[in-house]
């Protein structure tokens, strides 16, 4: 069953000429990472906020775990859905621990459970609890505040997490670090994540599937690879930079293009690359080291070889 299913969902704000979201229909599989991508004003935030009913659709239905989201009352629903906003919105008068404890507290967990959960969440986002628990948000860097925001959204153990440009306000390096941390978290926890961004690189990097939007309409819903390979129209093609081959290579894993080890294989000093790296990384290693063959590894074990020719062939 889909974790979230949008069925002909539209939103028309009063006194606004155009429709903010028009007839969105798509399903988000449980445990998948879905990114909403599109230019400013295309309706990403509106679509996201209809999931936790901060905005009510004008028409259409959103099903959560198969159930009409209007079946339970809004506050109960929201306590079951993690929510991270761009401006973070940490409560400045509460410590990091108190901020993270909000939802567990609303869910009336016991004091001991909450304390344990707070420490667990802080450790999860790489903020040693002993050091950060009692700080106030103002005593943290922007990136650290974002981590607390994520920890706070995870604390009530929601199955679904909504994130609205959560890394929009941090510098590029911190941003990459936060993306990595989020991907690792996702692999470990298998949450269903709906993530808004207008940064194409970020979307391609994080998404299992992407929803490409413009003017309130969903133009394409597919995996990053399929969208790059077969963009639905010129708008999508241009937005994702589908003609950029290096970008496509960034999405294909080495193991998909490699050849098995030849029987007479001996490893005499060729550079190695882990099998879950991208072809883009392989390409830069090939060009950088000026070699013709890479040895693909699983851990320390050689499992295949990759040549420039195979990369070329895979593109076609």
């Amino acid at each position: 069953m889909s974790a979230i299913r949008f069925e002909n969902v539209s939103k028309q704000f009063a006194n606004v000429g155009h429709t903010a979201v028009a007839d969105a229909t798509f399903a988000v599989a449980e445990g998948s990472f879905v990114v909403l991508l599109g230019p400013s004003g295309c309706g990403k935030t509106t679509l996201l906020k209809m999931v936790n009913r901060l905005i009510e659709p004008t028409s259409g239905v959103i099903y959560l775990d198969g159930q009409d989201s209007r079946a339970v009352d809004a506050t109960t629903l929201r306590r079951q859905i993690g929510y991270v906003i761009q401006q973070i919105g940490l409560f400045p008068h509460m410590t990091v621990a108190e901020n993270v404890a909000i939802v567990p507290d609303l869910l009336k967990w016991s004091k001991e459970d909450i304390a344990a959960r707070v420490d667990e969440m802080l450790a999860l986002v790489d903020l040693p609890p002993a050091q950060y628990r009692d700080r106030y948000p103002a005593q943290l860097s922007g990136g650290q505040q974002q981590r607390v925001g994520v920890a706070r959204a995870l604390a009530g153990d929601p199955k679904v997490i909504l994130m609205d440009e959560p890394f929009g306000a941090v510098d590029a390096i911190t941003r990459i670090g936060l993306q990595d941390a989020l991907l690792q978290l996702q692999r470990r926890l298998h949450k269903t994540i709906l993530f808004v961004t207008h940064d194409v690189e970020e979307a391609l990097r994080l998404a299992d599937k992407m929803v490409v939007m413009k003017d309130g309409r969903v133009h394409q819903y597919d995996t990053p690879f399929n969208i790059l390979k077969n963009p639905a129209n010129d708008f999508v093609r241009e937005l994702v930079g589908a003609d950029d081959m290096v970008r496509q290579l960034g999405l294909i894993r080495v193991e998909a293009a490699m050849q098995p080890l030849p029987p007479d294989f001996t490893h005499n000093g060729q550079p190695t690359i882990p099998q879950d790296s991208s072809l883009r990384q392989a390409l830069s290693l090939l060009l950088g080291d000026g070699v013709t063959t890479l040895v693909v590894t699983d851990g320390a074990e050689p499992v295949g070889v990759l040549t420039l020719r195979q990369i070329q062939r895979y593109r076609e």
């Binding site: 506050t75 929201r78 929510y83 973070i88 609303l106």
Partner: peptide
């Protein structure tokens, strides 16, 4: 009071 703080509060399910 910043609208972001209110929105976070509502979004987490506070009454």
């Amino acid at each position: 009071i910043s609208p972001a703080i209110r929105e976070a509060a509502v979004g987490m399910g506070m009454t």
